[in-house]
């Protein structure tokens, strides 16, 4: 059973497992990305046919500065193993300073997560410009590998949350 296949997975003894089920662990990643840089980089990875693991799904925002940490919290308690936030390099924000705002918010959120004992390394903030299709693909690959070593998100497997 692949990690990304929907529906519950009854094991042989009939007990349900989570989506991570049997088989090698495939982390699920949600990416909140800026329309002007990282989203374009993902497009560029596409047009350049740069291959990367299919573990990531992209949510387009107009700016990384539009990220609401609620989205990240929803994602890490709602089935995703990692969250990638992609913004423009410092100084390059299409809206002047949105990426700095994102950086503050993500820093606060990660500090909270760390403080409550959560593996905050599941949340990545990366600067990927529109021309960095390769960097986008590499970031996803790197993140998938990193999350594999972290194992499944405990908040995905633990229902008592």
């Amino acid at each position: 059973m692949e990690a990304t296949v929907e529906g519950k997975t009854p094991t042989e003894d009939g007990t349900p497992t989570t989506s991570q089920g049997a088989g090698p662990f495939e982390p699920k990643i949600i990416a909140f990305v800026c329309n002007w840089c990282t989203y374009a980089a993902a497009d560029l990875a596409g047009t350049s046919r740069i291959q990367y693991p299919p573990n990531v799904k992209i949510v387009r925002l107009m700016c990384s500065g539009a990220i609401d940490p609620i989205y990240v919290l929803r994602a890490i308690t709602g089935g995703f193993d990692g969250v990638l936030i992609g913004g423009c390099h410092p100084g390059d924000c299409h809206y002047q300073t949105g990426n700095y705002k994102a950086r503050r918010r993500v820093t606060i959120l990660k500090e909270i997560l760390k403080s409550v004992g959560y593996d905050e390394e599941r949340v990545w903030l990366r600067w990927i410009s529109a021309s960095e299709g390769g960097a986008f693909a590499a970031t996803v690959s790197e993140m998938v590998e990193a999350l594999k070593s972290h194992g499944p998100n405990v908040l995905t497997t633990n229902w008592n949350k």
Partner: peptide, 26 residues
């Protein structure tokens, strides 16, 4: 529930506390 096998009702206790922290813990 289908997806995870089980969900707690009401859900999102953790999200509630973390969200409130995110809003005002500073």
């Amino acid at each position: 529930a289908d997806q995870y096998g089980v969900v707690k009702m009401p859900p999102d206790t953790l999200v509630f506390h973390l969200t409130r922290m995110n809003h005002m813990v500073t």
